[in-house]
Structure formats: structure tokens, C-alpha cells
Design a protein around this nucleic acid. Structure first.
Length: 411
DNA sequence: TCTGGGGTCCTAGGACCC
DNA sequence: TCTGGGGTCCTAGGACCC
């Protein structure tokens, strides 16, 4: 019988911040930005949650609900560091660990009885070891499948352990709201409510034909989940597989909406540089370029273009995204968010003429040097002049007011 | 009280090919 | 000339997750 653990860190970002500043303990803390900023809550302490603050809530709403809360900017480096610590602890219990995000993981503990005893005992050992090694609380769900283990850790929160024994999956799920099923969000929940389905048990009792008619193939998968069946490749996939990303993107929401073409295009160029750099770090080449625009009324559009040849060069991604932008943007319309990304990764850039290939190679090598310099001295110290193989000489951009992430280095 | 940023997966129509 | 059917790629949009 398969034994799957789902380990979920409690209020992860807040808990990490408390390690760096213990005076935060027991207080209402909101991580994600300042109280008057555009943005949403990344994590809220349990104290703040008492006032209705939760993740994804707009920061300004959180400030209205809980005026005495302490608002903190996030520290992604800290969370990555602690995520690695968590990973190391989990590896002590099984080599089959799959981090599902910075703060949660699946473990396959099948056949570890001899080492750690029965599942509950293993979970307690893990829980204690986690606290001792990282200073963080976690919750553990134990089941025979990932899906049920995940629902179970959710029910165990905070700081708890819950084992759904083999054969009791459907009984465990039945009384829960349909929203508890991973993959059922606001929209699907609403559709299910309209069909009179509120509990997972209601879902499990329905005829398959009915679900297929009302919700399509997705409805069938849902009914399976409701019965505790964890179907599909995801279930069978062995844990621990580190797969490469399928897309890389960056986006930016302006502090104030803007229709200033220079500001928009220079922001886009900065995003494209960050994306290009990460593409090079992955040692891949990207074929499809995506643009995303959000206007002041929140209408959002995306445009994409597939290149005849994959690339990892700044100026090509800057040029492509700018072209997409100029075609898509209603001139004069105020923009709230601009973003770009790439997908369709290939190992090499593909065929090109000899002369092109030489220029291309020069540009690639120059960029690798630039990447290293930027590592050492910071983003803004290195600016590319023209001549690196493109029309980007005019690309040297100022930092528009209100943009984060470009600190100017004093020399 | 206005709604982040990084992703994944799915759907659906049209193009194109066999 | 009442005109299939499937597979794959491309593009746009959307649900969902942390």
C-alpha cells in the first residue's frame, strides 16, 4: 500500500519573517507589501486572519480590516533559503521528495516502516525534526494518494497531523465543501452550487453521465476525485522528478496607470532582459514570445508570436515583445500592467547562415559576460551600447519613476 | 477595499497536412 | 462536386495554484 505525505508549512512567509525579527511573534502580520500599495497579501499571521485577512486579499482591504497589522515587504531570498532547509529535512525521511512550491512538498514513504515505524509515528518524528532544524511549524497529511494527502494536510492545519487510512478516503472527503478539492476554485465552486452540489459527497453520489453533460470531461475527473481516486499521470509519476520550466515570464504593475509609450517600452525592455537572462541560465532557447497588457479597467489581453528560430538574446526578445506591444496597444490607453514571457524551449537555436551565426555567437558571448558583471556589481552598472548585433542602440533606458528593482550604484 | 507575480494546464478555433 | 477525420501547431483566453 502506497503511503504519501503532504507536508505544508504553516504561514510560511510570516513564520520566516518571525525568525528574522522575533518581536513579530503573536502579532498581526501581513507579508506582501505596504498598507497603501497596489498588491495583495502573500501571507497573513493567524492573528491577522482573525480579522478576515487572508492571502490574495488586496493590501488596502487588509489594512481596512486590520488597521493595527504590521505590513512587511516579502523577502524571496529568505523564503528560498528556508525552502532548502525544509527540503533537506524531508530528504532525511525519504529520497522521494517533490517540492510542489516553496512551502509544500509530497513525500513517498512507502516501505519505510522498518526505519520510522507506522505512518503516524513517522509523521510525528518529521514534525519534531522540522521544528528543531528550521524553527518552523508544519502540517502533515497522510494518505494513499497525493490528492487526499493534500486535502488532509489542509484539514490538519495549523501545526497538525492527519492520517486518512486506506479505504476511508471517500468517507473522509464526503462532508467537506467542494472547494476543498484541489482544482476547484471560485468559478467551478459557483457552477457546482448552481447544480445544487455543495459537499464532496454530493459530487460523489452523482451519475457520471450527468456530470459529463454539465461540466464536460473535467466533470468526470472531478467525480473521480470526489471518490478519492487520484487519477492520471500526475499520480503515477514517481516523486522527486525535477523538471525544467515550460515558460519563463516577468510582469510589472505600475504604481499609477500610464499611457507614456517611452515608460511602457522601457519597462518592457527591462522585463525582456530579465527573461532573456533566465533563458540563458537554463541553457535553452525560446521560440514563442508572449506579451501581456492590462488596462486601467482591468481588461487583460495577451498576444504571442512564434519565431522561425529560437533565441536567448536580449535584443531579439526586446524587439519581438516591443513589436507585439505596438500592434496590441491602443495608443493613449492607460496601462496598469505590462508583462512578457517566453515558452517553447529548445536545446539549440537552430539553423542560420554562416555570417548570421558568427554575429549571433559574438552577441551570445558578450551577454554571458554581461550576466557575470551584473551578478557582481548589480543590474544597473552594465548597459549595452549599440553594435552587439541589433537595432537596440536606443534601448539604453532610464528608470521611469516608481519602478522597483533598479538600484543605481554609486561609483 | 480594487484586484501581485510566478507558474501550470485546459479549451477552442483555424491552419495545415495526410 | 451536400464536401471525412485525425493529428499537430499556433494563438487567445481563462481557471487555478501558491
Amino acid at each position: 500500500m502506497k503511503i504519501v505525505f503532504h507536508v505544508d508549512m504553516d504561514a510560511f512567509f510570516v513564520s520566516v519573517e518571525e525568525i528574522f525579527d522575533p518581536s513579530l511573534k503573536g502579532k498581526a502580520v501581513v507579508v506582501g507589501g505596504q498598507r497603501n500599495e497596489r498588491g495583495v497579501v502573500s501571507a497573513a499571521s493567524y492573528e491577522a486572519r482573525k480579522f478576515g485577512v487572508h492571502s490574495a486579499l488586496p493590501l488596502r482591504t487588509a489594512a481596512a480590516l486590520c488597521p493595527h497589522a504590521i505590513f512587511l515587504d516579502g523577502h524571496p531570498e529568505r523564503y528560498r533559503e528556508y525552502s532548502h532547509k525544509v527540503h533537506r529535512v524531508l530528504m532525511e525521511f525519504s529520497p522521494l521528495v517533490e517540492m510542489a512550491s516553496v512551502d509544500e512538498a509530497y513525500l513517498d514513504l512507502t516501505g519505510t516502516e522498518r526505519l520510522f515505524g507506522p505512518p503516524l509515528r513517522a509523521a510525528h518524528l518529521l514534525h519534531e525534526r522540522m521544528k528543531q532544524a528550521t524553527g518552523l511549524n508544519c502540517s502533515v497529511g497522510i494518505a494513499t494518494s497525493r490528492m487526499v494527502a493534500k486535502v488532509s494536510s489542509d484539514q490538519a492545519k495549523p501545526n497538525g497531523i492527519l492520517w486518512v487510512q486506506p479505504g476511508l478516503e471517500a468517507a473522509f472527503l464526503a462532508p467537506l465543501d467542494v472547494r476543498r478539492i484541489p482544482g476547484v476554485g471560485k468559478v467551478t465552486e459557483e457552477r457546482l452550487h448552481q447544480l445544487g452540489i455543495r459537499k464532496v459527497g454530493d459530487l460523489a453520489a452523482l451519475e457520471e453521465g450527468f456530470l459529463r453533460r454539465k461540466l464536460g470531461e473535467w466533470g468526470l475527473a472531478l467525480a473521480g476525485k470526489a471518490r478519492g481516486w487520484d487519477a492520471g499521470a500526475w499520480f503515477d509519476k514517481p516523486m522527486g522528478g525535477e523538471d525544467e520550466p515550460k515558460s519563463i515570464s516577468h510582469e510589472h504593475t505600475f504604481g499609477e496607470d500610464t499611457a507614456d509609450q517611452t515608460a511602457l517600452e522601457s519597462t518592457l525592455a527591462r522585463l525582456a532582459e530579465k527573461v532573456a537572462r533566465r533563458v540563458r541560465e537554463q541553457s535553452v532557447h525560446a521560440r514563442t514570445v508572449h506579451l501581456k497588457l492590462r488596462y486601467e479597467d482591468f481588461t487583460t489581453l495577451t498576444r504571442s508570436h512564434t519565431l522561425s528560430r529560437a533565441t536567448q538574446l536580449d535584443h531579439e526578445l526586446i524587439g519581438e515583445s516591443r513589436e507585439l506591444f505596438r500592434k496590441a496597444w491602443r495608443k493613449g490607453a492607460k496601462v496598469r500592467l505590462i508583462g512578457m514571457g517566453v515558452s517553447g524551449f529548445e536545446a539549440t537555436e537552430g539553423q542560420m547562415g554562416l555570417l548570421d551565426a558568427e554575429a549571433h555567437e559574438r552577441a551570445r558571448k558578450a551577454l554571458l559576460v554581461v550576466d557575470r558583471l551584473r551578478d557582481k556589481y548589480g543590474e544597473s552598472t552594465v548597459k549595452l551600447a549599440g553594435g552587439l548585433g541589433g537595432d537596440h542602440a536606443e534601448r539604453v533606458h532610464e528608470n521611469p519613476v516608481g519602478l522597483p528593482g533598479k538600484r543605481v550604484k554609486k561609483t
